[in-house]
Design a protein around this nucleic acid. Structure first.
Lengths: 196, 196
DNA sequence: TCCTTCTATGCAACTCGTTGCATAGACAAG
DNA sequence: CTTGTCTATGCAACGAGTTGCATAGAAGGA
């Protein structure tokens, strides 16, 4: 139930409405935790019922009213408690790896197209992360010195950057490998494949 | 619904029972896709009902009977179709990153302990991956030359190794950063934190 | 004999997360 | 004045995944 905790952190960094949270989950926080607006609204409602959050109706001009959520004392306590509990190292869910192993039983050309698509997507993400780093942490517009919260946000972003770089290098490895397999002639029969 | 496809790939590599699949999801395939035995049994049943898999009752000595599943023709077709559809690059769910950003509002010492725990866990994983690589792909016991299926399994494993190495380096970065923040005295007040 | 462990399968209840659909205020363009 | 877009919130249905519990055959040890 870490979505609750991601919301608590995001609202502590800056109070906001469900809609605004959904925006953040498309950016910054969304680099390492995704959520749809449905999920967010539902969890916000539950958290408010549980007393973790406080709501305030805010009238706006030029746009509909919104409900601004902020973290109440029990919310801070719940976050603190979670921060002191050990969690399991994440278990990956990597569709593309399944596809790569599946390619032994199918057309490798389709795999190449897919891997190239992913390579481009990760290249775009890396560019976005690097632009964000320059804007918020290392560029001339960035505050200096950074406070503790900003330093921690920066180290998380560095993790995202390292992840994208690693992934891009690996996808290149995959492409090289697939081309090497295709080059010397027809791909040898994969294990488990019945003879035609 | 990629669990279906992971099961198809695993059963193409080697037919087996639900129990054996659950074992594999604790190892090899489980390096990039996790599943509990419940999930596996339920999906196996559905896939069999849908005609994607064939079952065979196998009597064993010294242990209970088992149902051995193998991929039927419609299963191969379903896998092939999925392999030709583009998929979205994965969206991460990284609890630890939430915790790191949350540490701005809490005790950094608890974060250090947690990060060190994760560092050890990833170190263990890396050692396990490297041992597997030596055993199956690069060591003297490994078959040479590798066929296409083994080459693809190897490149996926190399991805896992690169991921663990990157993660370990990042966790060291996190520890260095947290210590640097703690060193010059009390941590500065984080943004959004109300004055006491 | 009883207890534990390993293999092997499954149900029931629940939470988490996605998808499709719906509503509504405010504004801008045609 | 209708249409489209952006902000803002929500319901209903479904599918994915987890947790707890239950059963049972076979083996080995206390």
């Amino acid at each position: 139930m870490a979505l609750e905790h991601a919301i608590l952190v995001s609202l502590l960094e800056q109070p906001g409405s469900g809609y605004e949270l959904a925006r953040r989950f498309d950016r910054s926080i969304g680099y390492f935790w995704t959520a749809t607006h449905q999920q967010i609204y539902r969890v916000l409602k539950r958290m408010e019922t549980d007393g973790l959050l406080a709501v305030r109706e805010v009238a706006q001009q030029g746009r509909p009213d919104k409900k601004e959520y902020s973290v109440a004392q029990p919310g801070r306590a719940a976050l603190s408690q979670w921060l002191h509990e050990p969690i399991e190292p994440e278990s990956l869910r990597h569709d593309l790896a399944v596809k790569i192993r599946g390619a032994a039983f199918d057309d490798p050309a389709a795999l190449v197209r897919e891997v190239e698509r992913h390579r481009r997507a990760h290249g775009d993400r890396l560019a976005r992360y690097l632009a964000g780093e320059l804007r918020d942490f290392t560029g001339p517009q960035a505050p200096a010195p950074l406070d503790a919260g900003q330093e921690l946000q920066h180290v998380v972003l560095r993790g995202g950057i390292a992840y994208e770089r690693m992934t891009i290098a690996w996808l290149d490895d995959v492409l090289t490998t697939v081309h090497r397999l295709a080059a010397p002639g027809p791909v040898p029969r994969a294990p488990g494949t019945p003879p035609d």
